[in-house]
Design a protein around this nucleic acid. Structure first.
Lengths: 272, 272
DNA sequence: TGAATTAATTCCATTATTTGGAACTGTGTT
DNA sequence: AACACAGTTCCAAATAATGGAATTAATTCA
């Protein structure tokens, strides 16, 4: 039959996304499931994806057979347990997290508040570790969590270590969604803050992502990899943690960050 | 022209591996990384995979671009942080785990020992949740961990709920590796134990996977899905936890399991 | 240091896999 | 029974993956 002469050539190559072929399309299904809170059945996924029926169906089948996706009793999809297995290994083996662990523990002991270790991925920050006062058995739900970089302390601190051109490239992709009245609302405001972070060495989150939650953070950069950007933060509820208290933790947060950096450098040099 | 359309009762497909095309090949790279403790560089992966150079190279590139794989400073590969993000969602949203959570908490309080929630995946068991006495901040490293089913309490309990033909099918794939002197060493021994588990309702691990670790477990089966197999267990160090103590927890472990089953059934019926 | 060796990356004609529109099946509803 | 709708299967055409070989980069060692 006639081929499709109207093959519009609008290659929608998102600046960020390199071509990852078939794999990328399959993983994007996982992304859809991850990013949606409501239960999704086949047609729901179909609507949200740009794949045609047949294609999507086979992709989902493959994901299920690989254990990356599962079908719930109501026919909706959930992420598969094999992902837990991979993540468990990813976390346990993560060099950076292992190096940072004792330092964030000390930071927690010094401040008595919740401490986060975050790593930047593009324009989002993923929490790699967390230490809380109350023995929080359910913490796992937090590790691996991802938040926008532009409105969190860890995120802004991490952004600040990027080279300027890289930073601007990524900022083009930020959508300044307003989470609270304090959320920064445009690129100019964010750039201004990043300037301050660069000169002072500390980032603050003043209830910008979640009302009632404030934090002070300090950036960590890799001795070798210019694209690696991370940070530590001390977080607390605004009703209890005053701006003064936050400010009083700024130094020790920076010390923690730089201790981690130094340990990473040491980690790299010796041949063992 | 097709062959007998219906006589395909004998699925001739490779028992374990269905064809998952390009995706499967890519994921198998993640498997190689997961299953090897030593750091692997490109050629190391190449040796362990059956893909040719060029192909493997592109697969790895794609995995890296998708954030599923990362390159460490020494050129070896590590699982990527995106996996953490997926796993975080997989865990938080998991229906079964959410239903089971309060019950295993109670079981922990009643016994004072470590409690596990495990789910069977083929012939392995993945730990979906864990509650420990000591506020174990580092517990995440355990959740998502996977162990052979045939030599763990959770695993054997879970196997016992499978229908006989399904069980035998899977048992063909078990490799009876000897982890400790007590590890069951052949299919006959395992089948005998499963018979006992089916009649008594409890499985024991008598230092079969790790020397010094014992446990008692109880199977959980899904009210609807005959392929779903899980279990709860109470685990403790052999020097402190005597066989008598384990036996005294058998009932409450079974009670926990059946309470979880009932809750799952309730969870499914009402359409609020 | 630089030649030899090994590892990593790129290339591209061939091939196999994915693609996607459409037809089909199955389930539930009035 | 007829309808509507979600899910599944099919297959020729299009495309993306393949894989052997050439190229480049990184180590090793004389």
């Amino acid at each position: 039959m006639g081929k499709n002469p109207q093959s519009a050539r609008k290659k929608r190559v998102d600046l960020a996304k390199k071509d990852t072929g078939t794999l990328g399309k399959a993983i994007s299904v996982l992304d859809i499931i991850t990013q949606t809170s409501a239960p999704l059945r086949f047609t729901d996924v179909l609507q949200r994806s740009d794949q045609p029926r047949g294609t999507l169906h086979r992709q989902i089948s493959n994901l299920i057979n690989e254990g990356l996706l599962a079908v719930k009793s109501d026919g909706s999809y959930a992420l598969g347990l094999r992902l837990l297995q991979f993540a468990s290994k990813a976390w346990a083996d993560n060099e950076f997290r292992n190096v940072a662990a004792p330092h964030i523990q000390k930071l927690h002991e010094a401040t008595g508040e919740t401490v986060h270790l975050g790593v930047l991925r593009d324009i989002e920050v993923t929490y790699l570790d967390k230490i809380e006062s109350r023995r929080n058995i359910r913490m796992v739900s937090q590790i691996g969590n991802t938040a926008p970089a532009f409105c969190t302390g860890v995120g802004k601190a991490a952004l600040s270590v990027l080279a300027d051109d890289e930073l601007r490239e990524r900022m083009k992709r930020i959508e300044f969604r307003r989470f609270t009245p304090n959320t920064l609302s445009d690129a100019a405001a964010l750039l201004a803050e990043i300037d301050i972070i660069r000169s002072t060495g500390n980032a603050y989150d003043r209830e910008e992502h979640e009302t009632g939650i404030t934090c002070v953070a300090a950036p960590i950069l890799s001795p070798t990899d210019p694209l690696f950007a991370a940070s530590v933060s001390v977080t607390g509820p605004a009703y209890r943690v005053t701006p003064q208290m936050l400010a009083s933790w700024a130094d020790i947060a920076r010390d923690t960050a730089s201790a981690i950096m130094q340990n990473m450098a040491i980690q790299l040099s010796p041949r063992s």
